[in-house]
Design a protein around this nucleic acid. Structure first.
Lengths: 350, 350
DNA sequence: TTGAAAGCGTTACCAG
DNA sequence: CTGGTAACGCTTTCAA
């Protein structure tokens, strides 16, 4: 018997201290080898039924829990998935995270969350930390502008929401060009003539929505793009600026990067004495909870957030099991228009 | 040289395969012992400056990352905190989670998230999983009705939001009795005479808010309590039921368990042709984002959510470092009334 | 100041 | 079907 085992025995036998139960303890208890116990616990068929039963019973009695750390060291798997997102307080990410946690949990994985606050640097640091933790996979809504710093990643990786130029990894996300197209077309159909766009942060989502906006406008309609951000304050400021710009005609329709931006922008309009949607119509993106219950219920575009979370997890699990299979690109999710009062105008002269 | 090392050398020397760099590799590279490298990397002062510098440089060149799993096995610490909550999509929990992740991250910890969907059973199962992962601490918004199944937990634990009867552990949360008191008093001050309460799920938060409601009503005013839940659908249903109950007088003020419930309840009132706040005034709890931008801006009670997240993390880190110190109970957080249109009535006859 | 030896708790591998 | 041996990558302990 080893010295450490003697110490252990001395400690636990008094009952004063209760050290965690180990495989070895059960083995000694039952006069088996640790290996036999290990196998029995995992239902390995090498072990006889009767032996297995005895082991399981004793383990339950002693309240034995496998030490996941020790197991990971030897198996090389942690059953941990790293989720790297800009901000859990944006409801989009909270919803995706929920779906991911659910799907991952069902497959026996836990999710480690990591915020980046949209900082590319923090993101890289966090990913490195997660890699040193040996997470089995990574799900990232990246704040990077290029794929440079993400190329070195060895861990199976699936990106979502934002595309990275030249990145070979799997991706799950909405067809944002279609988002922009649908939103703008809807405004055109509602009779809007001068449609402005409050664009979001410099990420692929925002780029693509802008492209869709331009697609819809075509040659006939002039574009009017204003930089905003992703929150209501930035929407408010951008709309204020737009209204103050005397040089141009006031827009009669605004396609906003997302719902919070739209809410801020609508506030700016209402404060300026304009009517929504009669003077200015609005479309947002996200389908936030309660956006149908706002001062002016908001027309928006639903991204099927939960489906994105499920899908991204499924892809990652696939990646992880099937090794380095060539990533079969998955079609983008189709957005869905949800019409509410903020964009519903009486038919105009056509 | 061990057999495994020979294999490794054969594999890596061809350049075809790149195995992760280990302490040993750096050591061999530099003609040092693994120990010297280990110490140098951790800035241990046993090692000379020059040696340390060389080690750090080589580690950076090889892109070495400490294997956290191996380290955990020997140190017994994982730098992992388990966060167990009912639902990440309730903005309260998303905000607390954000604050926790921030505070924990600053101290070098990662957060593993686990939803329970308000199921006491799922909660216990998740906690056991987290324990077998050897998380260093647990933060739990418990769905248990008693402390029975949580007593056995050895891992340092801090509860938040919901109190558990007879639980000795630390707790961080709002003074919910005061919440109920403030809300109801406010309605009384606004001239309401018949104040109903839509109570939430059977948890301490809801219990305490109910107590505060009763405190405020005193002997003079009759109480009227209806079971609701925590979402807008349940608020809508509860309010419908209340209005349909012809036996009693319609309430002229309603204190709702939280903002979503209040939103649902207001909807029911407006649909019934009642005016808010003139016929019925409302107060919610939570201070959701955009609750000032609803069809009727909602009077609510702010819980200082981020502060709760910071505090609960601080407490846990304290617990973890200071061992089994007697948990110094922390005062409850003070709620704050935020008055908006949903409860502002013209002064009534007094 | 440095390094050798001894684990940490588990599982993989292979010989009985 | 069973069980011994070695190893996973790191750190703690203690002797040189």
């Amino acid at each position: 018997m080893k010295f450490s085992d003697i110490v252990r025995l001395a400690l636990t036998s008094t009952g004063d201290v209760s050290l965690p139960v180990r495989l070895k303890d059960i083995a000694r208890d039952l006069g088996l080898s640790p290996m036999a116990v290990s196998k029995a616990l995992r239902g390995h068929k090498d072990i006889g039924q009767e032996t297995t039963r005895r082991v399981l019973q004793r383990a339950a009695e002693l309240n034995y829990r496998t030490d996941a750390v020790a197991r990971s060291l030897v198996t090389g798997r942690t059953f941990l998935i790293g989720l790297v997102i800009p901000d859990l307080m944006q409801s989009f990410f909270a919803e995706v995270a929920t779906a991911i946690e659910q799907a991952a949990g069902a497959a026996g994985y836990h999710v480690v969350i990591s915020h980046t606050g949209e900082s590319a640097q923090v993101e890289v640091a966090n990913i490195e930390l997660l890699e040193s933790r040996k997470v089995d996979g990574l799900i990232v809504a990246s704040a990077q502008r290029s794929n440079r710093r993400l190329r070195a990643i060895k861990t199976p990786l699936v990106l979502f929401d934002r595309v990275l130029p030249g990145m070979q990894s799997q991706f799950v996300g909405t067809d944002n060009r279609k988002v922009g197209l649908m939103a703008t077309q809807h405004l055109l159909e509602q009779g809007c003539r001068r449609i402005a766009h409050l664009r979001g942060p410099l990420l692929s989502t925002s780029e693509d929505r802008l492209k869709g906006y331009r697609d819809a406008l075509g040659k006939q309609h002039a574009e009017q793009v204003v930089e905003a951000g992703h929150d209501d304050a930035s929407g408010y400021a951008a709309m204020k600026a737009l209204l103050a710009d005397g040089g141009r005609l006031r827009p009669d329709g605004v396609f906003c990067f997302n719902d919070p931006v739209a809410i801020g922008a609508m506030r700016a309009c209402l404060e300026a004495g304009l009517r929504v949607p009669d003077d200015v119509a609005f479309v947002g993106v996200a389908n936030m909870r309660f956006s149908d219950w706002l001062s002016v219920p908001l027309t928006t575009i639903d991204q099927h957030t939960a489906a994105i979370g499920m899908q991204v997890t499924r892809q990652l699990l696939n990646c992880m099991t099937s090794g380095a299979k060539p990533p079969a690109p998955v079609p983008l999710m189709s957005p869905e228009l949800i019409v509410r009062a903020s964009s519903l105008r009486r038919p105009r002269a056509r």
